[in-house]
Design a protein around this nucleic acid. Structure first.
Length: 575
DNA sequence: AACAGAAGCAACCGCAGTTCA
DNA sequence: GTGAACTGCGGTTGCTTCTGT
């Protein structure tokens, strides 16, 4: 079925009926029935027509735009033009630092879910974000920088962990569609945490500081979600669907993208796979080139953040294992504890930071309905948390808006929640204090890896000096002020902010009558959500996963051993 | 001033999900 | 229940502008 044909069939305006605006820029495609549609850049006249149409008829029914307005554009083109350029409240201009930071964090958690990311950035379009990200990747690739700054990887890992938890809890729950969509990001962390927490099985791991096994590997996987581990040529949604079909996002991801784990029944191989401090096994590269960044074809950096023992390409050679960022701070990283993961971390992937607006009032817009529900849950849970915050911070409340917490690593906020222990068994505040490089210039955080840790002759985990990243004269001295600055960057996503009247009355461009009202949202979701989450909490699957866990949180230390990991990871025969 | 490459941006394309007849 | 139509999303391409040589 040809979309163009369909659109043309709807087009109604035939060539002989229409006077072509010859001389205008843009090309014209003639469809089988003679209808001609313009392509290429939009003119201001066309914009005016479209704006007028939307004013009269509202969004949606894009294919009828042509019928009613005579605009020689297909519906898709109209929708795109409206969404990306004409709709009210679009922010134009460069991304602010806050936005950049948010994009990085969101991408670390969501991957290339541009539309969802855009929902977190009011006034920004998915296209803008996508373009920004793609150019950013190019930039960093040239500079030999890792895709994500370390602290973002940490946050993403927490989100991933939570994602996994949720998937396990409620893998069959269609309502967790959003969660399922993000399954990719969770898989590695389990692997890594398992590595770390099962050191007796991995002979090399005990030599690593507490943070190493999980954080190092996780950092690599922060980028590997699109690169080294993932097959970039595989359609993401296809992955999702297959995953869903498998009744387990986790298993699906493993099946489709993590076949390489099959070889990890051997602990040594696993160690080699995860590289860095482990003896390099060139065979691993030969056998699994995709592991080491030879998966090309996506925009993902070949050198991503995942630095194996020995890069196999020049691009990778520039790469430095992300772990080195923490080289001088390993004492902090190693401030291990046996506490259970951070409470909020459990449901990071359930919720996300607020979106500013509901962009459409189109009743048929299912995607936006999802977005509305998504936002509503966020709002609802944010509200819940604000009320629960004082009473109980040690109970898993899946409805909590932990996503915001991830994005708002305000030290004070962590403290507010009691024991600020990360899922990696590290005090979050100390992790971020030691790991968040913010340049004094206030330039984008991710653009500035800590130089002083990049230029050592040989870092602690055995990465030879020749793999050191190109050092750049960036001041990475960490000061409390900078720390504060970095935290405050993110406060726009504070759950509290959601309930702020200003936020709620954020002009969506459709008048205040379409403002999201917290009461309405609460009424919409209210008990349903809570019961849903209660159900999740009690799900037998979750209990099964939790069985044997020493922490009672399912994925804490001991919850999943290396021995049972292959059972999870080798799900190629998963029913 | 001319040129090449990089960067930024806008738009198109194809696929998939949802809705409707 | 099924197929067509509509819509949204992500990937990609192409054009324009900027920057360095």
């Amino acid at each position: 079925m040809s979309r163009t044909t369909n659109e043309c069939e709807d087009g109604m305006i035939s060539k002989d009926q229409t006077e072509l605006p010859l001389g205008e820029e843009g090309s014209y495609d003639e469809c089988t029935n003679g209808v001609v549609l313009k392509k290429g850049p939009w003119t201001s006249a066309e914009d005016a027509i479209l704006i007028e149409y939307v004013k009269k008829h509202g969004e949606g029914n894009w294919n009828s735009v042509q019928k009613h307005s005579g605009l020689l554009r297909c519906g898709k083109s109209c929708r795109l033009r409206w969404a990306n350029h004409l709709r009210p409240n679009l922010k134009k201009g460069a991304f602010t630092q806050e936005e950049e930071q948010l994009i990085i964090e969101l991408h670390a958690k969501m991957g290339n879910k541009w539309a969802r990311m855009a929902a977190h950035l009011p006034g920004r379009t998915d296209n803008e974000i996508k373009n920004y990200w793609n150019t950013r990747i190019k930039r960093r690739q040239r500079a030999g920088l890792p895709l994500y700054p370390p602290e973002v990887c940490l946050q993403a890992s927490q989100g991933s962990q939570q994602c996994l938890d949720i998937n396990r809890i409620d893998s069959g729950n269609k309502g967790q569609h959003d969660v399922l969509q993000t399954h990719n990001y969770g898989i590695p962390d389990v692997m890594f945490d398992n590595l770390r927490t099962n050191q007796s099985i991995l002979p090399y791991v005990p030599e690593l500081p507490d943070i190493s096994a999980s954080s190092v590997l996780m950092k690599g996987l922060c980028s590997s979600q699109h690169g080294s581990f993932m097959s970039p040529t595989m359609h993401r949604q296809k992955r999702l669907r297959e995953t869903t079909n498998l009744q387990s996002s986790f298993s699906g991801g493993m099946k489709n993208d993590f076949h390489v784990f099959d070889q990890f029944q051997d602990g040594d191989k696993a160690a080699q796979y995860f590289g860095l401090s482990f003896p390099f096994d060139p065979d691993s590269v030969a056998k699994n080139p995709e592991i080491f960044g030879e998966n090309q074809g996506s925009h993902t950096l070949a050198n991503g953040n995942f630095s194996a023992s020995k890069p196999t390409s020049e691009a990778v050679k520039l790469e430095l294992p992300s772990l080195q960022y923490a080289e001088t701070d390993l004492g902090g990283w190693g401030a291990s504890c046996s506490s259970s993961p951070l409470i909020e971390s459990v449901d990071t992937f359930i919720q996300s930071p607020p979106t500013g607006t509901v962009e459409s009032n189109s009743p048929r817009n299912s995607g936006l309905l999802d977005a509305l529900l998504y936002e509503a849950r966020t709002l609802s849970s944010a509200k819940n948390r604000s009320s629960d915050k004082s009473s109980n911070s040690s109970t898993i409340t899946p409805g909590d808006d932990a996503d915001c917490s991830v994005l708002n690593f305000s030290e004070t906020e962590w403290e507010d929640y009691g024991d600020p222990i990360s899922p990696l068994c590290h005090p979050v505040t100390s992790l971020f204090r030691e790991c968040t490089p913010i340049s004094a210039s206030g330039s984008s955080l991710d653009e500035s890896p800590p130089t002083e840790t990049l230029t050592g002759s040989k870092h602690k985990f055995g990465c030879p000096a020749e793999y050191n990243m190109k050092s750049e004269p960036v001041d990475h001295t960490w000061t409390p002020d900078r720390e504060k600055e970095s935290y405050t960057h993110l406060n726009i996503t504070r759950p509290d902010a959601l309930l702020d009247s200003d936020w709620l009355e954020h002009d969506s461009g459709y008048g205040k009558d379409q403002v999201i009202m917290p009461e309405a949202i609460a009424a919409l979701l209210g008990d349903d959500l809570s019961s849903e989450y209660k159900q999740m909490d009690l799900s037998s699957e979750y209990k099964q996963m939790d069985a044997g866990a020493s922490t009672g949180h399912g994925w804490g230390p001991g919850s999943c051993s290396w021995n049972n990991m292959p059972a999870v990871c080798q799900m190629s025969e998963f029913p």
